[in-house]
Simulated assay, not measured.
Amino acid sequence: MAVLNFPNPSRSYDTSRHCVCFWGYDNSREITFMVDDTLLRTLQPGLGTDERSVLGAFDEFREKVLQLANKQYVAGPQNRYSIS
């Protein structure tokens, strides 16, 4: 089983894709994750649609999202995952 690390707390909101992007690392390989804002709305009903609100929800539920990322990740050539 591959183990990801998330040493970088950086994240950004992609308004065109309606998702928060963040990065994990499998050794030195960077893996991009995109969590759909619909999932964040499930975790936080009434979530606003603005960038600040969505990033705040991501921060609040970061550990839960990282758990989902770890469950979805499979070591291999793929380096981009969408969590919805």
Rank of each mutant, 00 (worst) to 15 (best):
F6Q: 09
Y25H: 11
R17W: 02
L43A: 02
R52K: 15
D50N: 15
S53E: 13
P7M: 08
L68D: 06
P9D: 00
D36C: 06
D14I: 06
F6C: 12
R52T: 15
E30T: 08
I31D: 01
Y81K: 08
G76K: 05
L68A: 10
F58E: 06
V3Y: 02
Q67C: 09
G76L: 14
F61G: 04
N70Y: 03
R11G: 04
N27A: 10
D36H: 02
I83F: 09
N27C: 11
S12F: 00
Q44V: 04
N5S: 10
S53K: 15
G56A: 13
N8L: 09
D36F: 01
V54H: 14
A75R: 00
M1W: 07
D26Q: 06
V20T: 08
Q44T: 09
T32A: 01
V65H: 06
A57Y: 05
L47I: 10
G48N: 15
Q72N: 08
D59C: 07
L68V: 11
E51P: 14
N27E: 11
R11H: 11
Y25D: 10
M1V: 12
Q78N: 15
Q78W: 12
V3G: 10
Y25M: 12
H18C: 03
L40R: 01
D50K: 15
E60P: 01
E30C: 08
V3D: 09
S16M: 07
G46T: 11
S10W: 04
S82P: 05
S82F: 09
I31H: 06
T49W: 05
A57L: 03
S28D: 03
L66W: 07
P77Q: 15
F6M: 11
G48C: 12
T38C: 05
N8P: 00
V65K: 01
V54Q: 13
P45H: 02
A57E: 03
A57R: 09
V74F: 00
M34W: 03
S16Y: 04
S10G: 02
A69R: 03
G56H: 10
S84L: 14
N79G: 01
T32N: 02
T32G: 02
F33W: 12
S53F: 04
I83N: 05
Y81R: 13
K71H: 10
S10Q: 09
T32E: 08
L55H: 07
D37M: 13
L47V: 10
T32H: 04
Q44D: 03
T38N: 08
K71T: 07
Q78G: 13
R52L: 15
T42H: 05
V20G: 01
K71G: 13
K64V: 05
Y13M: 14
A75Y: 07
D26K: 13
A57N: 06
G76R: 08
N8G: 00
